[in-house]
């Protein structure tokens, strides 16, 4: 791994063509190791993925759909490492670069990738991520994850997105949206909390 160039690219620096090529090679090497069926190779690879930063997010997302469940899981965890590394105080440029890559994944064909991107953005996403995240409130596969992710993002943009969704969402989903808005301190007419409404009877009988 070319540590210096990886860290520069992760930080969003403008690199020369040769440095960019070196970084692409480093990411490719990371992906190769993540795709190893040997967990003594794959494990350290995902555990040390943090500094690879934004350039590795997209390639790793593709590995998340690998049919080998341990390889897919390792790719998912590598992205988590990148997000947690980029989220450290003082790394704003790096964090925004990673968030931008995560936003691209919101349109991925795999629901599990979209879902993971949403939860990762809930940790580091800012206003630019809100609109593309909110678009997934209309996606039946991941809309609950989109709601949760937006609930976690501070600021008026996320609140406005949740409010806007209240006007178009399916009726049943509006209860969940109303909950998120209340968590954020908003008053919502109607749609009372269903949290204590029992719905699941047992088949076991006394006696």
């Amino acid at each position: 791994m070319n540590t210096q160039s990886v860290s520069l690219l992760a930080a969003g620096a403008t690199l020369s063509a040769s440095a960019r090529a070196a970084d692409q090679a480093a990411v490719a090497e990371l992906v190769t190791r993540i795709k190893s069926t040997d967990d003594t190779v794959r494990g350290p690879a995902w555990q040390n993925a943090g500094p690879y930063g934004a350039p590795a997010v997209g390639p790793l997302a593709e590995v998340m759909t690998d049919p080998h469940f341990e390889i897919a899981r390792s790719a998912r965890r590598a992205i988590e490492r990148i997000v947690r590394h980029a989220g450290r105080p003082g790394a704003e440029t790096e964090r925004r670069a990673v968030a931008a890559e995560l936003v691209k994944l919101l349109g991925h064909a795999s629901p599990s990738v979209r879902k993971h991107a949403l939860w990762m953005l809930s940790e580091i996403g800012e206003d630019p991520a809100v609109e593309p995240m909110a678009a997934l409130l209309a996606d039946p596969d991941v809309r609950e994850d989109a709601r949760c992710a937006l609930e976690r993002i501070p600021g008026a943009a996320a609140t406005a997105a949740l409010k806007k969704a209240m006007t178009t969402a399916p009726e049943a989903f509006k209860y969940a949206l109303a909950h998120s808005l209340r968590v954020r301190g908003e008053k919502v007419e109607g749609y009372p909390s269903q949290k204590r409404v029992p719905t699941k009877p047992t088949k076991v009988r006394a006696g």
Binding site: G87, E144, R147, S180, S193
Partner: peptide, 15 residues
Amino acid sequence: DEQARRLMSRPQRYP
């Protein structure tokens, strides 16, 4: 630490 602050909560699946 903004990220760690966000991780003080975990939005929950409705209901």
